[in-house]
Design a binder for these strands. Structure first.
Lengths: 386, 386
DNA sequence: TTAATTAGTTAAGGTGCCTAACACTCCCTG
DNA sequence: CAGGGAGTGTTAGGCACCTTAACTAATTAA
């Protein structure tokens, strides 16, 4: 086995790395454009492009003519740069996307699970294995090597020095063995959604923000200075464990915020408190929101109460990290009906933070893990692994 | 005016920067030591030292002989690198330190304020002006230029694009004009204490931790990945604004945590609840802690209760950012008597975090702002200003 | 067809690091 | 007290990676 490619990887010039990074992150471009953007001279651009073309990291895709002068050739990321596979091992479905490092979608599939999974189970693992196998079978040679496989899981995720047993992050591998020669990247699903909001959603252009997901469970993803914050044990954003109930004379119970703010407890309160004058009670949160949106007074009261409770949680997060912007997501949290109530409570309790609703929907997580896999693939291609 | 020095600053080679940084951060050293630590060859070390000596950034301070062979000359930071002044504009005293970039103390003074200041006032500003003037008068030519003046203030601090009126951070300048040609660095006092804990205190060697200060007021300083987290509006760590009281059926009130956990409210509860069997009630928290340490049952009960409350706050912080290590500081918080109670509550409510007591005492803040000023001075000397 | 304009290449040079080889200083030994 | 071993510091030469200057190539407007 000859290791020319490996040797070559370790000696990419700084300018070539910058050009490649630019093509990955900003999409196809011409030499003059990248040269002026990166502050590189034309000879250097020549050398960088030649170097990357030799590696197959870059390919010409045509010419662009301006109003005057010779037309410039345009380049994009080439096949040898590899591609990534992103999997969202969710509770109701497995979402999978295969794409190039510069985010050209090569393959995608959504598999609905037969029944809701409350945690990562062997059944989820089997479904992931089947979906990944299907994607691998559909792989075409011109996609190049599979560089990174990213998997979003609903557990906290620790690094190689952490206790992976305690976090249960590896349950996804009970019935699934990742392909060889591929880097595997595991990330918490809420963190992934936060990453997606940063790049494609409500937090575009924000360096610092917090993403709060409210659904069956609650969680937070934190981005500070463009960096995803994971915490020492991968437990940053586990706001289900905020002290609650917390008041003079009461004793907080672990995980109680999650129980109290999750949709099941909410619906239980709605049903317990529903007045017959308001008609039949809603069956789930979707109906509750629908009724509130249609002017149902009882529904609106419950939504407003819940918005205030969510606002208190958000205010606590704002008080700790001051993110400036808070994006509300998740099945329940992303409803714009919550926005005024949450916003008011936050403004009343803490320093200002702009509260927004997510609009990425259920694709947020898979888009986020795809993005993280692409970033890892970029580092791998450049030989800049940690 | 000739700008040779400025021009020279802008063209320091990378190796010289690395050598200078090493001398600043790790103290005096020899060429061979730094060369092997930084991975630089002997010719490169020669060039770097020559370059820095020409600028006056470095000076030889003697020779070190090993067991064998020629002795190596030792270098340290030179006068032209400048020095920094650090001021803690505290509530009971103004603490001032002048030191070189490599932390050789040149001058220090503590000025006790005639009466406790609950916020930055004109009186504090006048005292700062007097202390700085005294320090400037004591300045010797061989200290080199005053590069940075750091001031720690008990307000949040926003950057140049923030609303400095709202933060009241500039009140310290009402009666005080900083010297010309000097960079002024303003930082929140709790953040400063956190920085001191990281470098000289209970969080030495930790990349990620949280510092919780409990005294008359409460606050938190957050360090993630070695970086001090300030937040979008400088309000990160304002845990006095955590949602409280927060329980079903109650409505949180802004800033209520601070009122409830601050020492004044604590002592009010102690007095209201004091049993005559336990003798005369304590006059302040120092006495309360003393009585608890001496086995006073009533005092111990109150300390334990307060520790549990602090534990709940800490658990909330841990749930949001998962710092791994929490250092307790401040007049009341740094008492080791609190440690078991806080620790137990945190363990019960959230993912694990190690809780420690600070032992830097009342110097923490001035040591932290000194450190930040030194780091800024280093960047300025290297022409790496943002 | 020619001039103007932009794209890309070739040639020459500078910066910042390296290795190799030599010179210097220190201590130990015979 | 000369000689040698070991570590420190300098000189010479070279390489990697960027630059500017000047050229060639392609394209449009006049």
């Amino acid at each position: 086995m000859w290791t020319e490619a490996v040797a070559a990887r370790l000696s990419i010039t700084g300018s070539a790395k910058a050009v490649f990074r630019s093509l990955v992150l900003d999409g196809p471009s011409t030499r003059p454009n990248m040269g002026s953007a990166l502050g590189l001279s034309r000879p250097t651009m020549s050398a960088a492009i030649a170097e990357l073309e030799n590696l197959g990291y870059v390919e010409m895709i045509g010419a662009v003519r301006g109003p005057l002068g010779r037309s410039a050739s345009q380049y994009r990321v080439g096949p040898q740069a590899g591609h990534v596979m992103a999997v969202d091992a969710g509770s109701t479905s497995i979402r999978l996307r295969v794409s190039t490092l510069d985010r050209r979608l090569l393959y995608s599939h959504v598999h609905r699970l037969p029944m809701r999974q409350f945690e990562v189970s062997a059944e989820v693992s089997r479904a992931v294995a089947a979906e990944v196998a299907a994607a691998l079978a559909a792989t075409l040679p011109e996609w190049g090597p599979l560089s990174t496989l990213g998997i979003a899981v609903p557990t906290r995720v620790v690094g190689p020095d952490g206790d992976a047993e305690a976090s249960r992050q590896n349950v996804v591998f009970t019935a699934f063995t990742p392909p060889q020669q591929t880097t595997v990247l595991l990330e918490n699903n809420v963190n992934c959604a936060a990453v997606a909001e940063m790049h494609y959603g409500a937090a575009q252009g924000e360096e610092t923000f917090s993403y709060v997901q409210i659904g069956l469970k609650i969680g937070m993803g934190l981005v500070l200075g463009g960096q995803l914050i994971r915490g020492r044990y991968g437990a940053a954003g586990e706001i289900g464990h905020l002290a609650f109930p917390f008041a003079p004379g009461t004793e907080p119970r672990p995980g109680e915020v999650e129980h109290y703010l999750g949709t099941e407890a909410l619906m239980a309160r709605v049903h317990a408190d529903w007045s017959p004058d308001d008609g039949a009670p809603p069956l789930d949160t979707t109906e509750l929101l629908l009724m509130a949106g249609n002017g149902g007074v009882g529904a609106q009261r419950h939504v407003a109460k819940h918005a205030a409770d969510i606002g208190a949680i958000v205010a606590s997060c704002v008080s700790v990290v001051d993110p400036g912007v808070v994006v509300l997501g998740g099945g329940f949290g992303s409803s714009p009906l919550l926005l005024p109530g949450v916003s008011d409570t936050v403004r009343r309790l803490s320093y200002s933070a702009e509260v927004r609703s997510s609009d990425l929907g259920s694709d947020a997580t898979v888009l986020g893990i795809e993005r993280l896999a692409m970033e890892r693939g970029l580092l791998l291609a450049l030989g800049e692994t940690i």
